[in-house]
């Protein structure tokens, strides 16, 4: 095994291009588990923690551009107002020690269906900025996940950043675990109201081969709420219930040690119903204040 430690983004991309079989490591929260238990023996580890460009976030063209190496702890403390859904998701991840190291970039690179950041990124219409020596491109996060732990990242590419438009409306994030901390999601749900566009964004996690949106639920909500955005009227209870049901229909879960498929479907319907109710209540209150 070799260990490469580029200090600039250009060097990192060069190394990636030269060593397509290298495994990139940042917080190490996935890679080191694989190595410690003998499941991962890459010929080369490409350490990205010295690449300064990855460790910062900025506001760029109205978007938050979140460097792929920014740990969750900083998302919580520095971006709670700008990226509330992602910050809520970040707070549920692992332990404080994990949140001090783990990154959204790493979550995306692993592309596990159980990755906690994904539902929040989906709901917020995030874009993934990836780069190689060939250049930089942006991938809508919806198109990023291509299979179980597979993504649209090409072998010579690295994740540079995630770009997220700060919300025009409330966001929610809920996650089911059978313990009150340090738990992998049995099912997770992200929700973002986009009143500026009359759109409701969703993301579901741990309930399909990839993180995915609940498109039918989004369309239903957009239609049901179309007359309410302006008036900020009360959300009919039946709308929330139906929204939950439609979110659940988007899931294609399996039975595994963490939960049954039937429970995941049920839990998604409850989480989605509650999340929409909370978000709408917040949207209504925001007007009054």
């Amino acid at each position: 095994m070799r260990f490469l430690q580029p200090t600039t983004w250009a060097e990192a991309l060069e190394a990636r291009a030269t060593h397509p079989d290298a495994v990139a490591i940042a917080g190490g929260t996935d890679v080191m588990v694989g190595i410690n238990f003998g499941r991962l023996r890459p010929p080369l580890l490409l350490d990205l923690t010295r690449v300064g460009e990855l460790q910062e976030w900025s506001v760029d063209g109205g978007d938050v551009r979140l460097g792929a190496g920014v740990p969750y702890a900083r998302v919580i403390t520095e971006l709670g107002d700008r990226l509330p859904g992602l910050a809520m998701a970040s707070r549920t991840i692992g332990s404080p020690q994990i949140r001090n190291r783990g990154t959204v970039g790493g979550n995306l690179a692993t592309a596990s269906p159980a990755g906690d950041a994904h539902p929040a990124l989906l709901a917020a219409d995030a874009e993934v900025e990836v780069a190689s020596v060939r250049g930089t491109r942006r991938i809508p996060v919806t198109d990023f996940y291509t299979g179980v732990k597979r993504s649209a990242l090409a072998p010579d590419e690295l994740i540079a950043a995630v770009r997220i438009r700060p919300p025009a409306g409330p966001q929610q994030y809920s996650k089911i675990g059978t313990r009150n901390a340090m738990v992998i999601a049995v099912a997770a749900f992200g929700l973002a109201l986009h009143p500026d566009r009359g759109v409701v964004g969703t993301g579901i996690g741990s309930a399909a081969p990839t993180p995915r949106r609940a498109t039918a639920a989004e369309e239903f909500a957009a239609e049901e709420l179309s007359g309410l955005w302006e008036s900020r009227g009360e959300l009919p209870a039946a709308t929330a219930v139906r929204f939950g049901e439609l979110v659940a229909t988007a899931a294609a879960p399996i039975d595994d040690v963490r939960g049954t498929a039937a429970y995941r479907v049920h839990a998604l319907s409850v989480m989605a119903r509650r999340a929409l109710t909370w978000a709408w209540a917040e949207y209504r209150t925001a007007k009054e204040s």
Binding site: Y173, S174, K175, G177, A181, R274, W278
Partner: peptide, 12 residues
């Protein structure tokens, strides 16, 4: 129940 995973605000 659920803690900061934010699954209930008292419902249920």
């Amino acid at each position: 129940p659920g803690g900061v995973s934010n699954t209930t605000h008292g419902e249920g």
